[in-house]
């Protein structure tokens, strides 16, 4: 049961603010451009609310922050992991594909999870069809599914969702 979407006005204000901050950063805080940037931000935010109405998954600042920290540490592990395999003479890889059933709902949570997994250790999103995600694994001997479920919980936290781990238990 998805939660009710945020009101369009809140979404509009939020997107305007984010766009304006991006404008400010990209113009390096140039004062002469700020007025124009404000107008553009508001217009683009209005258009974006028309084209992409608020989804049923509002972001949670706390979950987002936790996810960000998790993402950073895991992507460092991912880079070091692949580098270690590449530098060892035996080249210890055993590529293969696995297909998992995702527990997060369709829309931005599933999309965020699939994209994040491409930067996580040993996994690469290949195909997302419904709730079936096919991953290419660098090494099928690794506990890939455990890592995926851990990432899934963090992604659920970003949107304040509870994930039932029944899928995990039955596997």
């Amino acid at each position: 049961m998805p939660p009710a979407p945020a009101s369009p006005l809140i979404t509009f204000l939020f997107r305007s603010t984010v766009l304006f901050v991006v404008w400010w950063a990209l113009t390096l805080g140039e004062l002469s451009g700020l007025g124009f940037g404000a107008v553009v931000s508001v217009l683009v935010a209005w258009l974006s609310v028309r084209l992409f109405p608020p989804s049923g998954f509002p972001l949670r600042p706390g979950g987002l922050l936790l996810f960000f920290g998790y993402f950073l540490s895991r992507s460092v592990v991912a880079g070091v992991d692949v580098a270690r395999r590449l530098l060892s003479p035996a080249l210890p890889v055993q590529p293969g594909e696995i297909t998992l059933t995702l527990n997060v709902p369709e829309g931005s949570p599933r999309w965020l999870l699939a994209n994040t997994l491409s930067l996580m250790p040993g996994t690469l999103s290949v195909l997302l069809e419904g709730d079936q995600l096919t991953l290419h694994c660098l090494d099928t001997r690794d506990p890939v599914e455990r890592d995926v479920r851990a990432t899934e919980r963090r992604v659920a936290g970003v949107f304040g969702l509870a994930v039932d781990d029944c899928q995990e238990a039955t596997r």
Binding site: V76, A78, G79, D81, V82, L86, V93, L119, G122, L138
Partner: peptide
């Protein structure tokens, strides 16, 4: 790495860490 998919692993993860 000998196949395309494994090469993508190398490019995505290692290069992104380098960029970081």
């Amino acid at each position: 790495f000998s196949d395309t998919l494994t090469r993508i692993h190398a490019l995505t993860k290692v290069d992104n860490l380098g960029l970081g």
